[in-house]
């Protein structure tokens, strides 16, 4: 079985993380922003799993499970906030909710 070198997995994880960050920064729709955060979380998870596989340790997969749980909690809170915003401002534009400026 041909093994995939660690570098490849890490590069992929880095690219995914960068794409997620880019989406987080440039998109205004909060649904897409949440999705971008998911992508970033999964990029981190991928890095954990790849590293775990490389060193033959189960810790990477354990950490990935933890990341999944955190992501689920994050999505629950994020979607609730998103709904509240939608009720209050009738929009999903992240820049619309800027009342808390200095």
């Amino acid at each position: 079985m041909a093994t995939i070198p660690l570098e490849h997995s890490l590069v992929l994880a880095g690219v995914l993380f960068g794409l997620g960050t880019l989406g987080l920064l440039v998109r205004r729709n909060l649904v897409v922003v949440l999705m971008s955060i998911e992508v970033m979380l999964n990029a981190a998870g991928l890095a954990f799993v790849a590293a775990g596989a490389r060193f033959g340790e189960p810790d990477g997969q354990v950490f990935f499970l933890l990341v999944l749980a955190v992501a689920a909690a994050e999505v629950a809170v994020g979607l609730a906030l998103l709904l509240a915003l939608r009720h209050k401002m009738d929009t999903l534009d992240a820049d619309a909710a800027s009342a808390m400026r200095g």
Binding site: L24, L25, R28, A94, D95, A97, S98, M100, R101, G102
Partner: peptide, 18 residues
């Protein structure tokens, strides 16, 4: 001056963090 950085815009903060 410091208060001016408090734009209230989430993406601006995110950019700052990044």
């Amino acid at each position: 001056a410091a208060a001016r950085s408090e734009t209230g815009r989430v993406r601006f903060y995110a950019g700052g963090i990044v």
